[in-house]
Design a binder for these strands. Structure first.
Length: 505
RNA sequence: GAGGGUAUGGAGUAAUUGGUUAACUCGCCAGGUUUUCAUCCUGGAAACGCACUGCGCUUGUGCGGGUUCGAAUCCCGCUACCCUUGCCA
């Protein structure tokens, strides 16, 4: 076979917000494609008319835009293989379904859902397959005339694949090696529904992957059991020689216990499982997103990349281009990866520390405004520079600087107990006298002066400064005191100390 | 029930493809630095069992065997968990 250009796809269903596991699948597809100079396509698999959710498609596109995962072709971009929305490819599927029917690889089945349910009840482990299909109502058991009559009457039927029994089907998986399944355990899966004139996933994904010249199918582990069916379909169509290679990714597991990570876990444990905030159009339920929670897209990507894959080197912080460079399916692990939210936060903090003061200040400015405070840009940048390494999120900065904008209304009990000593009541007024003649903007000079004074008096450095801190801030927190009073200014500092002395005694 | 997949400290994972003392990161604990917090630095516990600050062991990569001079890596059996089992994807 001639060397084909690598082409992979991410093919979500527009049934709601994009799950973070799906994001990781898309990421691995992206990394793989870019690593090999190939293309990544975005295909929308909306063949289930029942589960379609308006807005989901836009949500998906916006999510990837935020994350920095760029598609080369697909919905929202276009390309040579359009349309990329399966609901717009009806005629294509119809043609291929007919091909299967004509070749005898598939048949029409008229059994109603109720009839099938009945069979499930009657026969234990019932499945529509080689052993049971002859007792069904289908084009294999009905006369040609009867079938035609039913179709002409507009009777709803489905097309099922006719799986040949007693055959070992091999699936070569790039991550798991060879997986063999006997065709006896496969059922005659529904390929097409006449009711909405749409194929099911199984048929649509094979037809589209073939037509779109997909070379590698990288998808979640939940697809592994149906992979043999897909192999069968490639054979039925005569496309076996250009069949894509498969790679089934390990699942993202709940942080504790077992099972797939779900939306509920996020709600329950307090972390997002969606890239962007999502409001369910039906229920109105809000789900938080990484973006709104203050995660940087690069941090989210970095964290996700290392969940189920590792580059084999002792480093954890990687840019997208480094990830592309390092990525390989061989280093994807087989076992499901438990979602570690703490690690995710750590990543964000690392990225936070890599940002410039300007970047962070610009991100924080609107938050400050929201809190009802205005601040000169340069001053805000100065403030941000003082506290930025104490938080993991830009959103958390407010909690570190609120006292710079609002005088304390009460004093933290623990801090007072530990830091406000009897001698503080005399030392602090003395300190205020020392400060009186100083220019608060001269931080270094002031520090030098005050430290010298403390030493000359034989006071304890920590004792004086911490008491001062409690008086001004209201608690034992914050950056260096001389920076704080510089920001507050003389007037405000004196007012706060005065009040503290009255309250704390 | 059936079929498939997976298994290394609490979590993510590494281990030159059979090579000796199971590494790294997060988290946790302690110490140092500091004007509090954070950063930073150093150290530690943590992979088997138990009456878990300790003790034990037939030293331990889910469990039990086996092959081998040597096993997390290979073989056999088992267990647990996960996925699939829709006219969903």
């Amino acid at each position: 076979m001639a060397e084909r250009k690598v082409r992979v796809r991410f093919a979500p269903s527009p049934t709601g917000a994009l799950h973070i596991g799906g994001v990781r699948t898309a990421l691995y597809n992206y990394l793989f494609a870019k690593k090999h100079g190939g293309d990544l396509l975005l295909r929308i698999e909306d063949t289930d008319s029942q589960r379609f959710v308006p807005g989901a498609e836009d949500y998906i596109i916006e999510s990837f835009k935020w994350l920095g995962i760029k598609f080369d072709e697909g919905v929202g971009i276009g390309g040579d293989h359009a349309p990329y929305r399966q609901s717009e490819r009806r005629d294509i599927y119809k043609k291929y379904v007919q091909q299967l029917l004509d070749a005898g690889y598939a048949y029409m089945a008229f059994d109603t859902p109720a009839e099938l349910e009945e069979k499930h009840k009657e026969i234990p482990n019932f499945q529509y397959d080689a052993h049971t299909r002859m007792s069904g109502i289908n084009s294999l058991t009905l006369s040609k005339e009867e079938v035609e009559k039913r179709v002409a009457n507009g009777e709803k039927y489905v097309v099922r694949i006719k799986v040949q029994p007693d055959e070992d089907i091999e699936v070569d998986d790039l991550i798991r090696g060879k997986v063999v399944i006997n065709s006896n355990v496969l059922d005659d899966k529904v390929l097409y529904k006449a009711a909405d004139e749409l194929p099911t996933y199984h048929l649509a994904n094979i037809v589209d992957d073939h037509l779109m010249e997909i070379t590698h199918v990288i998808r979640g582990e939940e697809w592994l059991p149906s992979a043999p069916l897909h192999v069968l379909l490639y054979r039925c169509f005569g496309w076996a020689d250009t069949m894509p290679k498969f790679a089934h990714l390990p699942l993202l597991l709940k942080p504790e216990g077992n099972g797939k990570l779900s939306k509920r876990d996020g709600d329950r444990l307090g972390f997002p499982v969606f890239p962007l905030q999502w409001k369910d159009p039906k229920t109105g339920d809000m789900s938080s997103g990484y973006r709104e929670s203050g995660y940087f897209p690069e941090a989210t990507i970095n964290f996700l990349a290392l969940l189920g894959w590792n580059p084999g080197i002792d480093r954890e912080i990687f840019s997208m281009s480094e990830l592309i460079d390092l990525f390989s399916l061989e280093r994807v692990s087989k076992a499901g990866a438990r979602f570690d939210f703490e690690k995710c936060k750590w990543f964000n903090k690392e990225y936070m520390m890599m940002k410039s003061d300007d970047e962070i200040t610009k991100l924080f400015a609107p938050i400050l405004e929201e809190k009802g405070h205005a601040c000169d840009y340069d001053k805000l940048k100065y403030i941000v520079s003082l506290v930025r390494n104490r938080v993991s999120f830009v959103n958390d900065i407010w909690n570190e600087v609120n006292y710079m904008f609002e005088a304390p209304t009460e004093y933290d009990e623990k801090s007072v107990k530990k830091r406000w000593k009897p001698e503080s009541s005399t030392q602090i007024p003395e300190l205020m006298q020392v400060l009186e003649g100083l220019d608060f903007a001269n931080v270094e000079e002031n520090e030098k002066t005050v430290l010298a004074w403390i030493e000359s008096k034989g006071y304890n450095l920590g004792g004086v400064m911490n008491a001062f801190r409690v008086a001004v801030v209201g608690a034992a927190r914050g950056p260096q005191m001389f920076d704080i009073i510089n920001i507050l200014g003389k007037e405000e500092t004196y007012a706060r100390v005065k009040r503290a002395l009255e309250v704390l005694k």
